[in-house]
Design a protein around this nucleic acid. Sequence first.
DNA 1: GTCAATATTATTGTATACAAAAGAAACCAT
DNA 2: ATGGTTTCTTTTGTATACAATAATATTGAC
Lengths: 218, 218
Amino acid sequence: MERKRADIIADQLEGLIFDGTFADGERLDEVQLAKRFSVSRTPVREALLRLTQSGLVEQLPRRGVFVRQPGPVELIEMFEVMAELEAICARLAASRITDDALRDLHETNARCNAAVEAQDSDGHFRENERFHAILYRQSGNSFLQQECLRLHHRLQPFRRVQLRLRGRMKQSMAEHKAIEVALEDGDGETAASVMRAHVAVQGEKFHHLMASLKPAAE
Amino acid sequence: MERKRADIIADQLEGLIFDGTFADGERLDEVQLAKRFSVSRTPVREALLRLTQSGLVEQLPRRGVFVRQPGPVELIEMFEVMAELEAICARLAASRITDDALRDLHETNARCNAAVEAQDSDGHFRENERFHAILYRQSGNSFLQQECLRLHHRLQPFRRVQLRLRGRMKQSMAEHKAIEVALEDGDGETAASVMRAHVAVQGEKFHHLMASLKPAAE
DNA sequence: GTCAATATTATTGTATACAAAAGAAACCAT
DNA sequence: ATGGTTTCTTTTGTATACAATAATATTGAC
């Protein structure tokens, strides 16, 4: 159950930004949003403040808040950090993961594979999320886990795109398997380097995809 | 120049939490703060919302906001993440750092050493900050840089303590030197591992210090 | 006709007023 | 006296009113 209206509005606004209803650079008018959600400006302002902290919008003093989608460079940077963070999780998890979690990881990968075979995109997405979430948790560092979840969530809209590329899903699953094996062996360095590449390639694929769509950019 | 009153208040409140004026678990009353800063509740609430996002306070719905200092476990976790993040910066910087920045780093270390010799605690602190800031920047990833600055800032009140330990400053300087050399050699892995230990030890020292002060804890 | 200065409008930032919910206190019953 | 219930108070969350500033439009001068 959600807490206050402001939080609900923040989540809804986030969704509207993620799905492109509010385009990059667009100004978010407080009174319009207030009318849209049938509330006063106060909870809308709180929601916008939260989005500002999340980095989804930018707030120019006395001018308003504007949607701020990361550009190509920033996106590559964010994926690079995500890759490093997940590599850390993998390395730490190699020595800290529980047997239960290892089993869970194995089963999750199995379900993920099955979803790929069945062309079940949503299923694959769900199990893929679970795979990564398990590793965040098994880093044994809940602060690291929180940071990973935060950045993961922020990159989510960009993450789905690259998975549609031909052959990417199967390669991705092979990487998952390699990470699983490395963790079973307690080989932190291997787990880290495979994971780093696994995540970093997502950013690169996305970048290439963008570049092919907008050849004139930059 | 600061933007709105709410931001100024947020910064001031942060300082008051850092210096212990507001103790852990203490409730921050909106009307009291409003009177203290001679404003209405509105900017106070905005400031508190910002601190909530930063993690300095916790907001229980319909109950109020409470100062939330990290406990021993969380602090160790945060230092572990900081160590890993800085290790990443060092590794990336090894291949990306500019000659100018290398010179700057060298001079900063020299000034830092001089400050240690002169027992200039503030000077050492300042140059030490600069050393780390240079590496954040030379990671060549401004998103990573921002994340490092954020966590660094959050850990600042706990960082100063361990430096007062006997012999720690000299050892710290030796580590700085080792990192500098590794960067000159373009040896990313060495730079990363030295940096990781350099930062991680801060958390451990702090932990030991706390444990020695409160032997009954946990 | 164009540029600039001023007036008008619109929008953000802050203050206050109101509503709802949680906590405290008083009252009653056993 | 103690436990529970109910009222009252305190405090958060929301709505509205006001103030200040930036954007826009209008008007006047050249």
